[in-house]
Design a protein around this nucleic acid. Structure first.
Length: 335
DNA sequence: CCCCAGGCAGCGC
DNA sequence: GCGCTGCATGGG
């Protein structure tokens, strides 16, 4: 689902500049939703934000997609520039990777349908500022492991776990000319499957149970008892994918829904965490009887939420509400 | 010092 | 089925 549309403009730097920047792609945004929010609200854990020395106060965002390091920068309200650094790849591949990452095109009209607008005109008006936000389509294994690290801890700790996993078990990515170290790829399943629990534990906030679960599910992928590519939206229904995911230790209802939505393209998945549950209660009066969210209560609540948010892109709608609730209502800034 | 931060699983009742 | 608890650490 998306947010940003690739412009036809494709500019290639023919000369190898110092620092080895290669392909450049300009992307036109259909809306004014800003780049920072698009990347971080899209559930990308691995983006780095840094000041752009050449263009104050503009910022540069750096990320690794499919082992390609790219830099993204907001040129103006409607255009962003994607530059590829590191290992040289053809511009057609860069374009494909970026397109894939940014996801499919989703119409705003389908994100919140007419019934929602009619029933909640006040809320809908406040959500309009998020027009253009997308659910990023990220690598499924990366999403799986990242969200297994996202239990009951703050976002800063989640990010640290993921960057440590990359440093200890990922592949170094070098500048193809100078051999300068640019960063680390996300680990392959094989690396995590063979990892020693002692080493893995360092990356999982010293949590041995989490380390064991990550090793176990990585082994399951290596021995083909779990095939994430088979669970994606084109091959398998959301219900089947989720059922298999929750059968693994360390994956409950919420994490499974995150993997389904952000990694496997199942748009009907609505991950219910403490924030989503809170706004479903406070904004829409969807309540759950008990304090703990049992599996049955979770599924009942998710069904009600899907009915509320419409049949097309309830996952995206729930994310937009998630950010509206966190940022605009509660004033949280940790993104 | 206390409480919470984008959960999950195991246990007792 | 429901409630409680451990897991772990950093920051307000």
């Amino acid at each position: 689902m998306v947010v940003l549309r690739l412009d036809k403009t494709l500019m290639l730097n023919s000369n190898q500049e110092k620092g080895c920047r290669c392909s450049k792609v300009f992307i036109k945004k259909p809306t004014y939703y800003n780049l920072h929010d698009t990347l971080f609200c899209g559930q990308a854990f691995r983006w780095i934000e840094k000041p752009n020395p050449n263009q104050n106060p503009s910022r540069i965002y750096e990320g690794i997609l499919q082992n390609i390091i790219i830099q993204v920068q907001e040129i103006d309200n409607q255009t962003i520039l994607v530059e590829q650094i590191g290992t040289r790849i053809p511009e057609t591949k860069l374009k494909k990777v970026v397109r894939q990452y940014l996801g499919l095109n989703v119409s705003w009209e389908k994100t919140f349908n007419t019934l929602f607008k009619k029933n909640y005109p006040g809320i809908y008006t406040k959500l309009k500022k998020y027009k253009g936000l997308s659910v990023l389509s990220q690598n499924n294994f990366e999403v799986l492991i990242s969200f297994m690290c996202a239990q009951g801890l703050g976002v800063s700790i989640i990010r640290r776990q993921i960057s440590m996993l990359c440093e200890l078990f990922g592949e170094p990515i070098l500048n193809f000319k100078s051999s300068e170290l640019l960063g680390y790829s996300f680990p392959k399943p094989e690396s995590l499957a063979e990892a020693s629990l002692h080493e893995l534990k360092k990356c999982t906030n010293n949590n041995g149970i989490r380390a064991k679960n990550i090793k176990h599910i990585s082994q399951s992928i290596c021995n083909s008892s779990l095939n994430l590519d088979e669970l994606c939206a084109e091959n398998t229904s959301y219900e089947e994918a989720k059922e298999l995911l929750v059968s693994f230790p360390g994956i409950g209802e919420k994490i499974a829904d995150c993997v389904c939505l952000f990694g496997l393209g199942h748009h009907e998945a609505i991950p219910i965490d403490r924030h989503v549950r809170e706004y479903l209660d406070k904004l829409f009066e969807l309540r759950t009887p008990s304090q703990a969210l049992s599996e049955q209560n979770y599924r009942n609540l998710a069904e009600k939420a899907r009915a509320l948010l419409g049949p097309d892109y309830p996952g995206l709608s729930s994310q937009i509400l998630f950010h509206y609730w966190r940022k605009d209502v509660k004033g949280l800034t940790s993104f």
